[in-house]
């Protein structure tokens, strides 16, 4: 009885930590990467994978309840909307002639 409960909590902690890690990496990337495209790439990871994993953790934590369905729908929305936003931003930047960063080779 307590065994399955412990496993469930362990899964929740694992998912939440992984989500937080993606958020930290995405934030560091947003601050440290050299140009618009790579920053967008890092920032989109935050919302997609980070928020996705955190919502998955919340869903597991919540168990089989009506609110869990809302969380799952929310995760689906994030998985759909966040990459689309990243794509639209990168496409607009590319179309308006922003040149991606290249490390100078000499």
């Amino acid at each position: 009885m307590t065994g399955t409960e412990d496993i469930r909590i362990a899964v929740v902690v694992g998912l939440a930590c992984a989500g937080a890690l993606f958020f930290i990496l995405g934030t560091v990337g947003l601050l440290r990467l050299p140009d618009f495209f790579s920053r967008i790439h890092a920032a989109t990871k935050c919302d997609t994978v980070g928020a996705g994993l955190l919502l998955a953790a919340l869903a597991v934590l919540n168990g089989a309840q009506p609110a869990t369905a809302k969380i799952v729908v929310l995760a689906g929305l994030v998985l759909l909307s966040s990459p689309t936003t990243g794509h639209a931003l990168a496409r607009a930047a590319h179309r308006t002639g922003l040149v991606p960063y290249h490390a100078e080779k000499e």
Partner: peptide, 12 residues
């Protein structure tokens, strides 16, 4: 308009 954006907006 990007087909991806178009599709997702229509879907949502």
């Amino acid at each position: 308009v990007s087909p991806i954006v178009s599709f997702v907006v229509r879907l949502l």
